[in-house]
Simulated assay, not measured.
Amino acid sequence: MEGNSKMADLKDAYIAALEKKLAELSGIEVDQIKKNQLANAADEARAISEMAEYVASIQVEQAGVAQAGVVNPQIAAVYSHITAELGEERGAHVLPPMKYDYAALEPHISAMIMEIHHTKHHQGYITNLKACTEKLKQAEEANDVAAMNALLPAIKFNGGGHLNHTIFWTNMAPNAGGEPSGPIADAINKEFGSFQDFKAKFSAASVGVKGSGWGWLGYCPKNDTVAVATCQNQDPLQITHGLIPLLGLDVWEHAYYLQYKNLRADYVKAFFNVINWANVNERYDNARKSAGH
């Protein structure tokens, strides 16, 4: 037990040192980082902490005092998408177990990155989301619409972080990668001309995300097509672009810096070696069926 405690302390110290170093290195893009909506692009832990403080700062008025208004529908949408993905009811959020070992994606993504990413960062979003949900419940009981809407940025950030990471883990698998087959391959070829053209467009979009965010392949239910899109921070794809997520790539620096340093393009290239195309195919089939195609 003592050995495990020491290992945990060493890991926490390592993470703190890494995040401090990333913050120092990110000074080369200080102007861009200041424009980021939530926090330093190289320090997700700080962003999670700041959002926790933001949630705690929201004051709910007493029942009968709060002003009426319209609740932003994106609040319900975030929870709805989480329920659809995980089967979780609002507030009952837990860290989903990985279906493979942390080291299973090596050498493309290191075991240490996977463990920190899953147990520290993803868990941080879940902890904050539960706090958001508790405060939302208080605001609903008081009919404080202003407080409900004030929670939206935190719900999108933390709910999106929970949703996006859950999809990300399933989008990857050991002994995977290569070119897709089946319906998703046909859709990619139809929309982009070839897998290589899709790969080039997806890679360019993901590498080009300013600051922190995600690269996505999504399904458009209206047009029955697939498309490449990007989102800032943890904004959910479906709320941002109306696309159902099929394949997501986390390009926050914490997802790759330990292994690839500032070479995001190398990380994006390596990602294609671990894509779980069976999962993407399943998501594509389900999305088309739900859209009536």
Results as ranks from 00 to 15, higher is better:
2 E>S: 12
4 N>A: 14
4 N>F: 10
14 Y>W: 09
16 A>P: 01
19 E>V: 11
20 K>G: 06
20 K>V: 03
22 L>I: 01
22 L>Y: 03
23 A>G: 14
28 I>F: 10
32 Q>V: 12
36 N>Q: 14
37 Q>R: 15
38 L>Q: 05
41 A>C: 11
41 A>I: 02
44 E>H: 08
47 A>D: 02
48 I>Y: 01
52 A>W: 01
52 A>C: 02
53 E>H: 07
53 E>Q: 12
57 S>W: 03
59 Q>S: 12
62 Q>I: 00
64 G>M: 12
66 A>L: 11
69 G>H: 08
70 V>N: 10
76 A>G: 13
76 A>M: 03
77 A>D: 06
78 V>N: 08
79 Y>S: 06
86 L>H: 10
86 L>R: 15
89 E>P: 00
91 G>I: 13
98 M>S: 12
99 K>I: 04
101 D>V: 00
101 D>R: 13
102 Y>A: 13
103 A>Q: 14
103 A>E: 14
104 A>P: 03
105 L>P: 00
107 P>N: 09
107 P>I: 06
111 A>H: 07
113 I>E: 02
113 I>C: 00
115 E>M: 11
116 I>E: 12
118 H>I: 04
119 T>I: 05
119 T>M: 12
124 G>L: 02
129 L>P: 03
132 C>S: 10
132 C>Y: 02
134 E>R: 10
139 A>L: 07
140 E>G: 08
140 E>P: 00
141 E>M: 13
141 E>Q: 15
142 A>V: 06
143 N>A: 15
143 N>D: 11
148 M>G: 01
151 L>H: 09
157 F>G: 00
158 N>Q: 13
160 G>T: 08
161 G>N: 05
169 W>Q: 01
174 P>C: 07
176 A>G: 08
177 G>F: 04
183 P>A: 12
184 I>V: 15
194 S>L: 14
194 S>Y: 14
199 K>L: 07
200 A>L: 15
202 F>I: 04
202 F>G: 04
207 V>K: 08
209 V>R: 09
209 V>T: 11
210 K>S: 12
210 K>R: 08
211 G>T: 09
220 C>V: 05
220 C>M: 01
221 P>G: 02
222 K>I: 03
224 D>L: 02
226 V>A: 02
226 V>P: 01
230 T>S: 13
230 T>R: 07
231 C>M: 06
231 C>D: 09
231 C>Q: 12
245 P>L: 03
247 L>T: 02
256 Y>G: 05
257 Y>Q: 01
261 K>Y: 05
264 R>N: 04
264 R>M: 04
268 V>N: 06
270 A>I: 03
276 N>E: 07
277 W>R: 05
280 V>H: 03
281 N>D: 14
283 R>A: 10
286 N>K: 15
293 H>N: 11
